[in-house]
Design a protein around this nucleic acid. Structure first.
Lengths: 148, 148
DNA sequence: TTCAATCCCTACCGTTTCACTCGGCTTTAT
DNA sequence: ATAAAGCCGAGTGAAACGGTAGGGATTGAA
């Protein structure tokens, strides 16, 4: 019941791109260095994000990655799904998905359905824009505290 | 971000014990057969539940497993924790746990904190007693539909 | 035109977890 | 005494995790 590092790394990378939204392509090495993530590993994650239509790329020298949309129009759910494959806590709660044959007599399923809807609510309503704003605020507070 | 089968199997087993609460020990084979779970595997899960103080055992012939408390006094969170080790979505949201050194600058952490509190709320407020009642109701409805 | 900085892609690899299985031991009602 | 139950440690094949390595294609700038 853990998110893998893909989710965490990927979210952080997308937020990093969001802070530089509108400033042109950001190179992989820039993101990797800033976030302390292995460059080669992050590249794989970026490919998933690209396939999912969350980022696009500029190739060649001075190329890099860009968000395809404004940060407020990207939900956390979308990003996590692109990276982790699915955010379902069990297979049998997906829409129309792999419902096991005894689903209707499974005593745990009602719980999982409720839990999943709560989780999806949080992940859908939270956007990369929010995360980014909060993060910038947080950095400002730290800087302020350091100077005083 | 999936629960392993330990969680699902274990919950179902505990509900099975709950439906027979007050009727004496229930053998492993009875639970395994009823729920369609491998007996040897279920035994391991039962061991975890015992260590956590959720079930107790009667040894020897006509022995078996019993809940240590009334089903309404057992939360789903407790059961899942016993089986899965932890229900935290990332390590850095635990109380006092492994907070990574850059936690205060991690742009994803606020999201995970919020998500975790929502998850814990559901898992804490839901009891084995509720699950069991719902399950019995459900079985009745199915039986009723079959007869008509 | 060449060169260096980029992204693109496939393959591999050591470790851990999952979902079991196996076999032998101890306890206890009958 | 015996058979039915729980107790316990070890092993196992497959998959996922968290990377690494190395080559290729594209492009801006010298």
């Amino acid at each position: 019941m853990k998110f893998s590092t893909k989710g965490t790394y990927g979210l952080r990378a997308v937020v990093e791109l969001a802070t530089r939204y509108g400033e042109g392509p950001v190179s992989l090495s820039a993101v990797a260095t800033e976030q302390g993530i292995s460059e080669a590993y992050l590249e794989q994650l970026m490919r998933s994000l690209k396939k999912a239509g969350i980022v696009r790329t500029a190739r060649g020298k001075s190329g890099g990655y860009l968000l395809t949309r404004e940060p407020v129009n990207i939900s956390v759910l979308e990003v996590l799904r692109a990276l982790e494959g699915s955010t379902d806590v069990v297979d049998c709660v997906g829409s129309g998905a792999n419902i096991c044959e005894n689903a209707c007599t499974c005593s745990a399923r009602p719980l999982f359905l409720k839990l999943q809807s709560r989780i999806n609510a949080v992940l859908e309503e939270t956007t990369i824009g929010e995360l980014t704003e909060d993060h910038i605020e947080q950095k400002k507070r730290i800087e302020h505290a350091r100077l005083s």
